[in-house]
Amino acid sequence: MSVRNILVGLALAFTAYLAARGLWWTAPVPMPWLLVVALFAYLGTTWLVVLWEPRKDGRAGTEPIPEVDGDGLDAALVAAQPSGRLPGWAAGLALGAAIVVPNALSVAVGLDHVTAPYATWYLGGIGALMVVVMVRRRPWIAWLGIIALAVTSSVWMGPLTALGLGLVGSVVWVAVAQLLMRSLDRAARDTAQLTTLQRQASGVEASQSVRQRERRTKVQRALAIAGPVLMRVVAEGGRLSEEERLGARIAEGSLRDELRGPRLLDDAVRAELERLRRRGSSVTVLDEGGLDRVDDVTLSIIRGQLAETLSEATSERLYVRTSPHESVAVTVVGRSGAGTGLSDEDAVDLWREIAHPRR
């Protein structure tokens, strides 16, 4: 049995006990039928408010928890939780009971018996009803009901008598219920905020792990490329043959490629870049972030087209750069001859734009 079911059972039993006191009259009452009608009207209204549940949506529980920041935390919390707020018509019915039931009971028993136990049970009964209304997220209605109860009981039996017979207890119950609801709401907000912070911390930790893995991979590749060359340089004291110098220049270019354009590289592209450098071409590879959001399948297609372009290149200087344009992925420019700057249009002998593949 859930906690909610236990609380509902206690509320039903307690309100039934309070109302049952109204049936145990010890003296004749002028209008017993009105007393019974008021009692059952109270029970019907109270039990309706206690047992009412919001209509469940078939999609409830399927939506993901929203990402929230500090400014939208309260709104996200309200959206993420099922609302238990009492509908307006039910709240109005409860307020009506708080006004009608005390007056009906007082009329039913007469002025001579308005302070009898079977006529004053409504002080606790209406207070219990307003506690339920407060828990059902209708604080203004609850306090209006308490005000109506205070005014009615004071008119029929006097303020001091009403306070002594139970009005104080009803006011205290409603006030404590409001404080408890505020404490629960604050605890729920703190829990949601803690969940958000934990999610953000997990995201940062995962991002750092990915970056560490990428750095480790780059270091291992750099050692694999430059390690043998450096060991050879140290062993020979810097005296290298032309072939070894060429190997050192190729290793340097490969390291620059790994640092400047890692997303442009695969085995085929690396092989073509090494071939071009061995034949004496100068190659510059630069990734400026144009491929950051490209998936692996699309990236593989772009790399294949880049490797094909490089395999046909004969330029003395090649510039491979990613493009910020939404339709162009990579631009390959080749230059040969006497030109020394990018403004020398006559020296450009290769211009290839690799477009983003259509999916």
Rank of each mutant, 00 (worst) to 15 (best):
Pro66Gly: 08
Val210Asn: 05
Ile354Ala: 00
Val8Pro: 01
Val151Asp: 06
Gly110Phe: 13
Ala338Val: 12
Ala60Glu: 15
Trp121Arg: 11
Ile301Met: 15
Glu288Ala: 05
Pro28Glu: 12
Asp344Tyr: 11
Gly253Asp: 15
Asp344Trp: 01
Tyr42Gln: 05
Arg249Lys: 04
Arg55Ala: 12
Met157Ser: 03
Val168His: 11
Pro102Ala: 07
Met134Ala: 08
Glu316Thr: 10
Leu197Asp: 06
Ala347Ile: 09
Glu242Cys: 04
Glu312Ser: 13
Gln208His: 06
Val155Trp: 15
Glu353Asn: 14
Ser154Leu: 05
Ala104Phe: 15
Glu274Tyr: 03
Val174Ser: 11
Val333Gln: 08
Ser343Lys: 09
Thr26Ala: 00
Arg85Asn: 02
Trp47Pro: 04
Met31Pro: 00
Trp140Arg: 13
Gly110Ala: 10
Ala235Lys: 09
Glu258Leu: 07
Arg358Phe: 12
Met181Tyr: 08
Met134Asp: 08
Ala76Phe: 09
Glu288Ser: 09
Val174Glu: 00
Met181Asp: 13
Arg138Pro: 01
Ala148Trp: 07
Gln81Thr: 13
Glu236Lys: 14
Pro66Ala: 13
Leu129Gln: 09
Leu230Ser: 07
Thr120Tyr: 12
Ser83Ile: 00
Leu93His: 15
Gly164Asp: 11
Ile99Ala: 04
Asp185Gly: 03
Ala347Gly: 10
Lys218Phe: 13
Arg293Tyr: 11
Arg232Val: 02
Thr161Asp: 09
Thr314Tyr: 02
Leu184Ile: 13
Leu51Trp: 15
Gly261Asp: 11
Val172Met: 03
Ser336Gln: 09
Ser282Cys: 01
Val174Ile: 13
Gly339Asp: 02
Trp143Thr: 09
Arg278Leu: 12
Ala206Glu: 05
Ser343Arg: 15
Ser327Phe: 02
Ser254Asn: 02
Arg321Gln: 13
Leu12Asn: 10
Gly72Met: 05
Leu144Phe: 03
Leu310Ser: 14
Leu34Asp: 05
Gly84Ile: 08
Arg215His: 14
Ala271His: 08
Ala27Val: 08
Leu184Ser: 05
Gly304His: 12
Asn5Ser: 05
Leu86Gln: 10
Ala41Lys: 05
Met157Lys: 00
Arg4Val: 12
Gly72Leu: 10
Ile225Cys: 10
Gly253Phe: 04
Arg270Asp: 14
Leu194Lys: 13
Ala94Asp: 05
Val174Leu: 04
His325Trp: 10
Gly96His: 11
Ala188Cys: 10
